[in-house]
C-alpha cells in the first residue's frame, strides 16, 4: 500500500466517523423530540387538572383525584410533568402535587431507582425524594453524593438542600472536596437551606483535608455569620496552606469578626503576602468597620498595586469620620482620587 493509499484510507475513515457522529446527534434529537411529543400527547387530556392543582385552584381535591386515577402509559407521562411543576411552585399546591406522586408509587420507587443503571432514572429519583421532602431517604441521598455520574451527585445535593436536614451537612461539605466532586455552588445553596444547624459542621470543615471544603466552609461561615467558626477562621487566615482558603477566611472575618481581628487582617496586607489575599484583607477591614484600621489602611494608599490602594481608600470611607478624614488628608494619587470621587457621589446620593 502506497502513502497515497494510506492517506485516502485515513481520510475516508475520518469522513465516516464524522458522518456517524452527525447521524448519532440527529438520531438523539429525533428520539428526544418524539419522546417529548408522545409525553405531551399523553398529558394533554390531563393538563387542565395539572394546572388546577399546581395553581391552588383545587379546593375540593377533584382535580388531584383525577390525576391520581390516571393509569397506563399516561401515568408515567403525568408524573414527569408533576415533577417538573413541583420544582416551580411552593406551598399547598406543592404538597398536593407531591401527594399525586405518592399515590402513583413514584416516591416509594425512588429509593430503588437510586440504584438503577440509568443515570437519568437515578437523578430523577434523587430529585423526587428532595421535592417530596422524604427525610427517611437521607442516608441514600448522602450515598448518592458519591455517584459516578455528576448529574446524580448534583441532584442528590439539591435534594438534601430541599429536605433541609442539617445532619447531612458534614457529608455534603466532605463531598465538595471528594474525588467525585460535588460542585461548590449547588452545595453552598443546599447548605444555606439547612439553616443554623450546620454551624458545627462548618467549624469542623475548616480543618478538613480538602482546600475546597475549607473554602466553602469559610465562605458560608461568613455568609451566615456563624460565630462558632470564628476561632477556626482566625487560624485559617494565619496558617492555612491554601491562599484561597485564607482569602475566604478574610472575607468571613470582615463580615463577622471582632475589633481584635484588625491586627491579623492588617498583617495579611503586608507586601510579602499574595496579592489577592492583600486585597481581600483590605476590603475586609472596611467591612469590619473598626476605626482602629485607619492607620494601616492609610499606609496602603501609596501601594504599588493600584487596585489594593483603591480598595484601601474605599474601605477608609466605610470607617466613618476618622477614615474619611484620613482619606481627605492623604497625598493625592489616582486611587485616592477615585475613592474621593466615590465619596462625593455617595454624599450626593444621600
Amino acid at each position: 500500500m502506497t502513502g497515497r493509499d494510506l492517506l485516502w484510507a485515513s481520510s475516508a475513515l475520518v469522513l465516516l466517523a464524522c458522518l456517524a457522529l452527525v447521524l448519532l446527534i440527529v438520531l438523539t434529537k429525533v428520539t428526544r423530540t418524539v419522546r417529548e411529543r408522545r409525553t405531551a400527547e399523553l398529558v394533554a387530556p390531563h393538563r387542565p387538572h395539572l394546572l388546577a392543582v399546581a395553581s391552588g385552584e383545587d379546593e375540593g381535591g377533584t382535580h388531584r383525584d383525577a390525576l391520581i386515577e390516571v393509569d397506563g402509559p399516561a401515568r408515567d407521562a403525568v408524573d414527569v410533568v408533576v415533577v417538573d411543576l413541583l420544582g416551580k411552585v411552593r406551598g399547598a399546591p406543592a404538597e398536593e402535587l407531591a401527594s399525586v406522586l405518592l399515590a402513583h408509587g413514584a416516591v416509594d420507587r425512588a429509593p430503588h431507582d437510586l440504584r438503577d443503571r440509568s443515570t437519568l432514572k437515578r437523578a430523577r429519583a434523587a430529585h423526587i425524594l428532595g421535592l417530596c421532602h422524604v427525610g427517611a431517604a437521607l442516608p441514600l441521598l448522602v450515598q448518592a453524593l458519591g455517584d459516578p455520574a455528576p448529574e446524580v451527585r448534583v441532584a442528590a445535593t439539591r435534594a438534601l438542600g430541599r429536605i433541609g436536614e442539617p445532619t447531612a451537612s458534614a457529608a455534603l461539605l466532605a463531598a465538595v472536596g471528594a474525588d467525585r466532586v460535588v460542585p461548590a455552588g449547588p452545595a453552598a445553596d443546599a447548605l444555606e437551606g439547612m439553616g443554623v444547624g450546620i454551624s458545627g459542621s462548618l467549624r469542623d470543615a475548616l480543618s478538613a483535608s480538602s482546600p475546597t471544603t475549607r473554602t466553602v466552609a469559610a465562605y458560608l461561615s461568613g455568609e451566615g455569620s456563624f460565630s462558632r467558626s470564628l476561632d477556626a477562621l482566625r487560624v485559617a487566615l494565619a496558617c492555612d496552606d491554601d491562599p484561597t482558603v485564607r482569602e475566604a477566611a478574610a472575607v468571613a472575618l470582615g463580615r463577622m469578626g471582632r475589633a481584635a481581628d484588625v491586627v491579623a487582617l492588617l498583617r495579611e496586607t503586608g507586601a510579602d503576602r499574595p496579592r489577592a489575599l492583600r486585597r481581600a484583607c483590605a476590603a475586609a477591614l472596611g467591612e469590619l468597620g473598626e476605626p482602629s484600621a485607619v492607620v494601616g489602611l492609610t499606609a496602603l494608599l501609596g501601594d504599588p498595586d493600584p487596585r489594593l490602594a483603591e480598595i484601601a481608600a474605599t474601605s477608609l470611607l466605610l470607617l466613618g469620620p476618622a477614615g474619611r478624614s484620613a482619606l481627605d488628608s492623604a497625598a493625592s494619587n489616582p486611587s485616592v482620587e477615585t475613592a474621593r470621587a466615590l465619596a462625593r457621589l455617595q454624599a450626593g446620593a444621600a
Binding site: A54, S55, G87, K88, V89, R90, G91, A92, P93
Partner: peptide, 8 residues
C-alpha cells in the same frame, strides 16, 4: 422568587 406560591 421561584419556586413561588400562585396564591401569593
Amino acid at each position: 422568587i421561584k419556586p413561588f406560591s400562585p396564591r401569593e
